[in-house]
Design a protein around this nucleic acid. Sequence first.
DNA 1: GCTAGAATTGAAAACGTTCCCGAAAACATG
DNA 2: CATGTTTTCGGGAACGTTTTCAATTCTAGC
Lengths: 341, 341
Amino acid sequence: MPTIHDVAKLAGVSRSTVSRVLNDRPGVHPKTRERVLAAVRELNYAPNFAARALKRQRADAVGLIIPSSFREPRSEEPRGYVLTEIIRGAYNFFTEQRLALTLLDDQGTFQFYQALFERRQVDGLLFIDLEPDPHMVERLKELDVPFVVIGNVDVEDVVCVDVDNYESSRRVVYYLYQLGHRRIAFINGPQRRFASQDRRAGVLAAVAELGLDLPTTYDQPGDFSERSGQKAMQRLLEADPRPTAIYAMNDRMAIGAIRAARDAGLRVPDDISIVGFDDIPVAPYIRPPLTTVRQPLYELGAAAARLLVQRIAGQELSAQRVLLPALLVERESVRAWPTEG
Amino acid sequence: MPTIHDVAKLAGVSRSTVSRVLNDRPGVHPKTRERVLAAVRELNYAPNFAARALKRQRADAVGLIIPSSFREPRSEEPRGYVLTEIIRGAYNFFTEQRLALTLLDDQGTFQFYQALFERRQVDGLLFIDLEPDPHMVERLKELDVPFVVIGNVDVEDVVCVDVDNYESSRRVVYYLYQLGHRRIAFINGPQRRFASQDRRAGVLAAVAELGLDLPTTYDQPGDFSERSGQKAMQRLLEADPRPTAIYAMNDRMAIGAIRAARDAGLRVPDDISIVGFDDIPVAPYIRPPLTTVRQPLYELGAAAARLLVQRIAGQELSAQRVLLPALLVERESVRAWPTEG
DNA sequence: GCTAGAATTGAAAACGTTCCCGAAAACATG
DNA sequence: CATGTTTTCGGGAACGTTTTCAATTCTAGC
């Protein structure tokens, strides 16, 4: 295993010079540089990672914190595609910046992340798609470790990137309205989740702006599960007058809703329109193919990575909160509704 | 940022002693150990990763090599669930062993992996779900870098773990046979892929063992795509007599086959049974829910991880090739067929 | 109380880089 | 050719651990 010393000896120069060439610093004669490079090639030399990290006091690596549900074999909700899409976006950017990616699952404890950072195993942390404990985040902030969260967290002055749940949700209502729907009902997500809160807020804003009526019977709770969507739909179908369009705040619930509609003898979208949120992989495959909102997962990862790199470089960030627009993808679970009066 | 020196000073001992305590080596007085531990706690000390790696000459990290298609945003075939399931299995084991996981995509070049290893950035490599270049693998072997491949590679003496495609495929044929099917047809995968070859070999073995007839019309090529499955099915439906069961060697082709059957006015499974392979996430959601073979992805990852750890520890492995059994999951695309004669 | 042997401990030399400084060499100017 | 300036280079001290080896302290047996 050749060291920088071997290269120096072969090239007939000192270690310092080799180091200079390798980190292309100025002030080395072109001729010398050539000799060094030749020696490097001949010995097939690659600088020792640990030695460099030790001296430079940085790891050239970032930690990817993923939900701890990742650890449980075959969890019911395998959201692998969300994770991989986000990671892909982040991966490309980090790799470009010559930063290694270390996979870590969410231990949740401050000590864990602190140790990670203090032992210089990573230069920064990227919390992917989880809602970290605010208390922990607070302490991390005090410790001055660079981190970015993809998703949301209820702490001031932490940089996080998220899909614009509010705006996207608002657009869904406008979309249905434009198609002629006036009796629009909602299946909400769990209200402790930020995503749900924001989506709901968008709905309420649109409803108010459009002067729509929102009876409580049109406003059903759900918990993101298929089953809860089904239940909510059953209640919705008893409302009088019956809604013409349903916006379920995630796809799983939308799928449940479709099932309930079918069980009740209704056809989707002929008798009732349904739109979801997320665009999970099965969305195009269910009957009917689901009209839904696609999250910009790849872009989320890329944006977060860029932000983290900036923070590691010590830049002050202008925007603390970055919201990315989502895309409504029209499939076949929605149809226009003749406007009544 | 406290160093081992600070701990030593606070505890009133030397660096060596602190080191001994931290790596719990024998020969340190219980009383002293207590003092050191107290100091560690008080200073919130965590050993510097790079320094330790430099001295110990190992990184305590492994590289996870994933398919380079991972880099392309929104690739057509997002097999995120395969990756995440395998990685999960590997993650848990590696974490238990206090090994960090570094994400790397498949550069394909020998130099890349060589550098990775020689610069001591990783102690070993895990090739996930790709068929690495045999030539490259050969050189990696010569270099003596510990690695394991999940999947297959055509090189002697490399340890790889894979799903038992041969046996699983054989079982599918037996399964259909037991249900009474005698006219069983096949849609093959691309023959350059090991998985296809093995699955096909299993089919042929079962066919021979059961004394079944396999006319060439029952033996259709495919390329793993949904479209090719559809085409193959169209040809299959023209055969006389028409097969009563189809085994498509992956789920995408099975989905295509179902579509073709439906287009031809046939009902699945009433008129014709179809079974796939892989159990991709949509499999339960298509109409009818697909009977298929589930790959033991999590277990694949875990097994590979264990093997790699053993290789890193320098153990000679008895088995070079580990095959894990797959599980037939029965859903609704297959029904029993009254035996003729 | 002395000594052999075992149990603890500390000093110092690595591990392979980077980088600050000063020295040497090259060049320009008079 | 002497001198000043700019390039280019090398020596050596870190960075924070681990580990070898020798020194010290303790224990026990006499």
